[in-house]
Computed example of a mutant assay.
Amino acid sequence: MRHIHVIGIGTGNPEHLTVQGIRALQATDAVFALDKGDAKAGLLGLRRAICDRYIEGRPYRFVEAPDPERDRRPTDYGAAVDDWHAARAVLYESLIAEHLREDERGAFLVWGDPSLYDSTLRILERVRARGCVAFTHDVIPGITSVQALAAAHRIPLHPIGEPVRITTGRRLREGLGEGPGATVVMLDGDPRFEGLDPDLTIYWGAYLGTSDEILAAGRLGDVAEEIRRVRAEARVRHGWIMDTYLLLRPAP
C-alpha cells in the first residue's frame, strides 16, 4: 500500500530537520509540493533545497501542483477555509493516485510542525474519507516558529509556572484575554497591535532560523511602528514573509 510521510521541516533552515525526518525523506520516492505563485517561489525553492541536500544516492520525484485559489477576505471565514480544504483534498487525491505507485512512499514537507496551524493532516483525512485512493501515513514532528522565536531571542516562553497561549492574528483582534501568562501570535498578516496595552513586552521575529532572520524586542508602545516598517520592507524585498511574536504582560 502507498505510504505518506508528513514531515515537519522547521522554519526554513535545512538543519532544523530531525534525524527521523531525514531518514523518512531518504526513503521517499515522490515529494509533493504546492506552487503558490511567483511571490512565494522562495518557499518552494527551500523545499527543493532540503530534498537535494538529504536525498542522496537514489532517484526521487519532486511533484509540483498549483495551490487552489482561496478567498483571502471572506465574509464567512469558516466556510471559505472548508471550501479551500475540499479543493486541496481533490488535488492531493489526484497527486497520490497519479504520481505514487502502490508500493511507493510519498512525502509532504510541512513548514514548522504538522500539528500547529497547518492543514495537511486534516486534508489527508478528507482524502481517506473519499475512499478513492488507499494509503497509510505517519507524522514526523518539526521545529515550530514558536520554538525558533524563543531560541533566537534566548528567552523562555513564559514566566515561571504560568501558561502559554498560542493564537492567530485574527483571534488577537478580539483581545488578549484575561489571566496571567504569555501569548504567542502566529499568522498575523497585518499586525497593527491596536487595542493592546502599550506596556506589553513584545519579542518579534521573521524568517526565523534562516540567513534572512530579523528580530526586534521591547516595550510594544516603543517598537510597534518600527516592527511594522521593517516587516513591510522585508515583505517587498522577499515577496513573502513569515513572522511570529510573543507578548508578555508587564510584571505586577
Score class of each variant (00 low, 15 high):
Asp67Thr: 13
Asp67Glu: 15
Pro68Asp: 01
Glu69Met: 07
Glu69Pro: 05
Arg73Gln: 03
Arg73Thr: 09
Pro74Thr: 10
Thr75Asp: 08
Thr75Lys: 05
Asp76Ala: 05
Gly78Lys: 05
Gly78Ala: 14
Ala79Phe: 04
Ala79Met: 06
Ala80Lys: 01
Ala80Tyr: 01
Ala80Ile: 07
Asp82Leu: 14
Asp82Val: 12
Asp82Asn: 14
Asp82Ser: 15
Asp83Arg: 13
Trp84Lys: 08
Trp84Asp: 10
Ala87Gln: 13
Ala87Phe: 00
Arg88Glu: 03
Ala89Pro: 09
Val90Ser: 10
Val90Leu: 11
Tyr92Pro: 12
Glu93Leu: 06
Ser94Pro: 04
Leu95Ser: 09
Leu95Val: 04
Ile96Val: 10
Glu98Leu: 11
Leu100Met: 06
Arg101Cys: 06
Glu102Met: 04
Arg105Ser: 11
Gly106Phe: 01
Ala107Ile: 14
Trp111Pro: 01
Gly112Tyr: 00
Pro114Thr: 04
Ser115His: 12
Tyr117Met: 07
Asp118Glu: 15
Asp118Leu: 15
Ser119Phe: 11
Ser119Gln: 14
Leu124Ala: 12
Glu125Gln: 13
Arg126Phe: 14
Arg126Glu: 15
Arg126Val: 15
Val127Met: 10
Arg128Glu: 06
Arg128Ser: 03
Ala129Gly: 05
Arg130Pro: 11
Arg130Asp: 12
Arg130Asn: 13
Arg130Tyr: 02
Ala134Glu: 15
Phe135Ala: 12
Thr136Asp: 15
Thr136Ile: 15
Thr136Ala: 15
His137Pro: 01
Asp138Met: 03
Asp138Asn: 02
Ile140Phe: 04
Ile140Pro: 00
Ile140Ala: 00
Pro141His: 09
Pro141Cys: 03
Gly142Arg: 03
Gly142Glu: 06
Thr144Tyr: 00
Thr144Arg: 02
Thr144Ile: 02
Val146Thr: 14
Gln147Pro: 03
Ala150Thr: 11
Ala150Val: 04
Ala150Glu: 03
His153Val: 06
His153Asn: 08
Arg154Ala: 12
Arg154Tyr: 02
Leu157Trp: 02
Pro159Phe: 02
Ile160Glu: 10
Gly161Val: 04
Pro163Arg: 02
Pro163Phe: 04
Pro163Tyr: 06
Pro163Asp: 08
Val164Lys: 03
Val164Glu: 03
Arg165His: 07
Arg165Val: 14
Thr167Asn: 03
Gly169Leu: 08
Gly169Gln: 09
Arg170Tyr: 06
Arg170Trp: 07
Arg171Gly: 02
Arg173Met: 09
Glu174Met: 06
Glu174Asp: 11
Gly175Tyr: 01
Gly175Gln: 07
Leu176Arg: 03
Gly177Lys: 01
Glu178Thr: 08
Gly179Met: 00
Pro180Leu: 05
Gly181Cys: 06
Ala182Tyr: 03
Ala182Trp: 02
Val184Ser: 06
Val185Ile: 15
Leu187Ile: 12
Asp188Cys: 14
Asp188Lys: 07
Asp188Phe: 05
Asp188Glu: 12
Pro191Phe: 03
Arg192Glu: 15
Arg192Ala: 14
Glu194Thr: 13
Glu194Phe: 01
Leu196Ile: 11
Leu196Asn: 08
Pro198Trp: 12
Leu200Ala: 01
Thr201Ala: 11
Ile202Gly: 09
Trp204Leu: 08
Tyr207Ser: 04
Leu208Arg: 05
Gly209Tyr: 09
Thr210Glu: 05
Ser211Val: 09
Ser211Ile: 11
Glu213Arg: 02
Glu213Tyr: 06
Ile214Lys: 00
